[in-house]
């Protein structure tokens, strides 16, 4: 079979094989819908990762807040967003982390593509 993955630059296609690879990580992040789960994670991050059977690579990415690494290990942005929320990060913070920008730089990048508001 041909592998056309990642044919769009800077984009990890969250497809079946990635969903297989990332299942434990995504299940853990899905659990963060629950406030008690978020507290339990904060109490002992490593133990919480182990509870969900994360791979060493997934666990390391979580501990390091390495969003791109979490995506490469099969993380889906929908559930990673809940992890980001737990860390108090919004989507611009997460955008900055992934693109090597500060949040302000990321917002300026967004603005640079804009229309309406001050953008005419």
């Amino acid at each position: 079979m041909t592998d056309d993955k990642n044919k769009t630059w800077g984009t990890i296609k969250f497809d079946g094989p990635m969903a297989t690879k990332g299942y434990a990580l995504n299940k853990m992040c899905y659990s963060f819908n629950n406030a008690e789960a978020r507290e339990e994670f904060k109490q002992d991050e490593a133990a919480y990762c182990d509870k969900f059977g994360l791979t060493p690579e997934q666990k390391e990415a979580v501990i390091n807040r390495d969003i791109l690494a979490m995506e490469r290990e099969g993380g889906s942005i929908y559930y990673l967003a809940k992890f980001a929320g737990l860390l108090g990060l919004n989507v611009q913070d997460v955008g900055g982390l992934q693109t090597g920008r500060t949040t302000e730089e990321f917002q300026a990048y967004l603005d640079s593509q804009g229309r309406g508001k001050n953008n005419g």
Binding site: D15, G16, P17, A19, T20, Y23
Partner: peptide, 22 residues
Amino acid sequence: TELSWHIVNELIEHDFDPTVCQ
């Protein structure tokens, strides 16, 4: 998992609407 995902891809391509279960 491999053939399963291949089948899912083909089903969606051909306008079936399965629920996909991991």
